[in-house]
């Protein structure tokens, strides 16, 4: 599985006009109700929005609906964009929140207890199950790439929405903890706590898939 290049085409710009100026001009036109400008904005950003949403939502049908919702929200809320941050940042935050709202509305068909996959410790602070095996190299040796990716995606789907959003934004998107906190309305310590718990859960799921204890 690989990423294909974007098929979007940017309009040519007057000589000397930077991409930043171009974007600002586009935003002003959209704010003024210019639908062609809105479509240009859609073409420019839809590929990135799609990838961001799909990483959170995990299936194409719902992703399509969420992408629609994101751009409807862009059209509705563009007047609130004041330029204090880059437009891409504003759009990223908007997308994260629309996707998170969708995740929260999902009915969870099975209850996965996070604690079942988190490490456990004895009263003296040692790992409950010893020795702890280093199964890291076995991931590549025993699992096909697609199988491993499927396992990770399934595990991510079993996380609570906010935990999933944090780990996707951090480890799949490479977003800083500070920006994740701003996007999701969390303090940095809260982001780190959720990230750590999500990673430990993911680790536990991988351990179990290889026949090891998550502890």
């Amino acid at each position: 599985m690989g990423q294909r290049g974007s098929t979007e085409v940017l309009h040519s710009t007057p000589k000397g006009q930077t991409s930043y100026d171009e974007e600002r001009a586009l935003i002003q036109r959209v704010k003024a109700g210019d639908y062609d400008a809105f479509e240009a904005m859609f073409r420019r950003h839809v590929a990135k929005v799609y990838r961001q949403v799909f990483k959170l939502i995990g299936n194409e049908a719902e992703t399509e609906e969420v992408v629609q919702d994101v751009f409807l929200a862009v059209h509705e809320k563009i007047r609130t964009f004041r330029g204090e941050s880059a437009f891409s940042t504003w759009l990223f935050r908007l997308t994260a929140n629309v996707a998170l709202s969708r995740l929260r509305k999902r009915k969870r068909t099975k209850e996965v207890l996070l604690d079942d996959y988190l490490p456990r410790f004895q009263d003296d602070g040692h790992h409950e199950v010893r020795p702890v095996f280093n199964w890291g190299n076995e991931l590549d040796l025993r699992l096909e790439k697609q199988e491993l990716q499927g396992l990770i995606r399934d595990a991510l789907d079993d996380l609570p929405p906010a935990d999933k959003a944090v780990i996707v934004m951090s480890d799949l998107e490479g977003i800083s903890n500070r920006e994740i906190g701003k996007s999701l309305g969390l303090s940095i310590p809260a982001v780190k706590a959720r990230l750590h718990r999500a990673r430990l859960f993911l680790r536990g799921r991988l351990a179990v898939s290889l026949g090891y204890s998550p502890s």
């Binding site: 990838r51 990483k55 890291g136 990716q149």
Partner: peptide, 14 residues
């Protein structure tokens, strides 16, 4: 290794 595996996930374009 877990973090690295998650970071290696690949996604298609729209």
């Amino acid at each position: 290794k877990t973090v690295h595996a998650a970071q290696s996930l690949r996604y298609e374009s729209i």
